[in-house]
Amino acid sequence: MEYFIELLLSGLTRGAIYALIALGYTMVYGIIGLINFAHGEIYMIGAFTSFIVATILSIYGFPLLAIIVLAGLAAVIWSASYGYTIEKIAYKPLRKAPRLSALISAIGMSIFLQNYVLLAQTSEFLPFPQLIPDFPFMEPIAHIVGSTDLVILVTTTIAMLILTVVIKYTKIGKAMRATSQDRTMAMLVGINVDRIISVTFIIGSSMAAIGGLLIASHIGQINFSIGFLAGIKAFTAAVLGGIGSVPGAVLGSVVLGLTESFATGYVSSDYEDVFAFSLLVLILIFKPSGLLGKVESQKV
């Protein structure tokens, strides 16, 4: 029973992190109908930025709380900037092009960013400093759930709540929903669509950066290639929940996290990634619209 609870909680933690990345996919897809293949790389750059800032600050002897806040802030700022710039260079000139062109461009961007970090930094795995201390009040249940897991769950929940409020109640959120429903119509009623797309990329990238920081301090090491797998898994989660739907992304992430956790716990840990990929293939074949997605019909 204890093992079951342990797996359940670790699955929830995984799911929470996937959710942070999956949101970026689902929001971008909702607005411009593009699978932002480079999104995993944004998450990787977020992790790298926070790693660099945290290491510098700890060398200069800053207090732990300041390190966490500044590293998180740096990750969000730079990831958002990368997201914004990528959209301007690789996607904006392709607005009117066929979908496959934009997808190939996104794949190119992803390969480019991976190798950019590889060349500018290193190909080795780097140890990520432990930013989150072991809380004393967590002592009695520490063998089931770690302090990092708790922080991840709480942070993700807060981030989701903020995002929901932004999308539901603010002017910019309204404009985002309008753009995703009908871009031409949104333009006609005076919404600056280019700006809304930029904002979407910025919000999605910031979420990914938070995910990058959290997962790096959870696993304890980073590398230039972490973005690829995390990106694919988050995409799986987004598709599972129904791509384009924000609550769907969260639901899909939790389902994927739990599936992975239980499958590795009860079946075999060798095939951890195979489970995720198989799940992706199965959903796309049997229910491409996902759990909460809308069915789109195609017209000539």
Binding site: L34, I35, R99, L100, L103, I232, F235, T236, V239, D273, V274, F277, S278, L280, V281, L284, I285, P288, Q298
Partner: peptide, 16 residues
């Protein structure tokens, strides 16, 4: 599947 979904499934298949 539509174009971009097909791309991702083939990617998943390759990785599997």
């Amino acid at each position: 599947l539509r174009g971009d979904y097909l791309a991702i499934v083939t990617l998943g298949f390759g990785e599997i």
